[in-house]
Amino acid sequence: MHIDIRINMAAYLRTLAWFMVGVILCFLVLNDPMKINPNMVLRPPSLTFPGGTDRLGRDVLARASAGFRASLAVAGTAEVISLGASLVANLLLLLMAKVRLKALFSVPLLALRTVPPFLTGLALAALLGATKWGLIFALAMISFPFEVAVVEEEINASIRMPHIEGAKAIGLPYYMILLRHVGTIAAPRIMRYALLDFVGLVAFEALLGFVGMTRPPAPSIGAEIYNAGPYIATYPWLFLVPALLLAVGLIVFNAGLTRLVNRR
């Protein structure tokens, strides 16, 4: 018993440690990321500027960290919107299935998946402008077509379970079956997908920043990496600091969330 508790505690602490590293990466803003220092241009990493400075004398680490935090916020909001929209779409699908008109709704949803999500996201971000909500909407559109399919699959798998058949047979109201039985089975699995999809959306947000969907001078980790590309040989910290921060951040959040969902 004591050993079990100790093992559980150790596992929880390890999961917590991953998230702590992730949170630390978001708050490495030791200097103002927007402040220009003309006297400190292109300085290598030092105690004052742990990530070095860029062409305008701005702190590279602070900009990368602030950009990563912005990516997490945008991707998180997009994931919540996409998940909410997927649940609503699936409720509509279930209602349509009740009146045998499911194809009316399922075929357009299937068609959404034929247009590649990166194209949709990039075009939407370009059309709506690189504003915060433009990016959120674009990322939600990247995630939605696949999330809706996963939610549908999980709900259908839950509905096919024998005890749901039993609940139907004894005449429980449909909404109660959905809320109390299907919901409790499908929700953890859907959350599992959503959490891992969130890490993918963070990478996509950085990718959109990389291809130019940013609003300078606000820090964007993707744009920082893009701007540093030509200077990789001469001023390597310009590339290495944001690239490593993004890579480590994604690895940490992916590992932490994977541990979390596996425990569930």
């Binding site: 990496i225 893009y226 590309g229 690895i251 992916n254």
Partner: peptide, 21 residues
């Protein structure tokens, strides 16, 4: 699992550097 999470644009820039060097 570690490499799969690294975005394509980071690995591409590193490979560009390698190809130039």
């Amino acid at each position: 699992n570690t490499v799969a999470v690294v975005p394509v644009f980071i690995s591409a820039i590193l490979l560009l550097f390698a190809s130039t060097k």
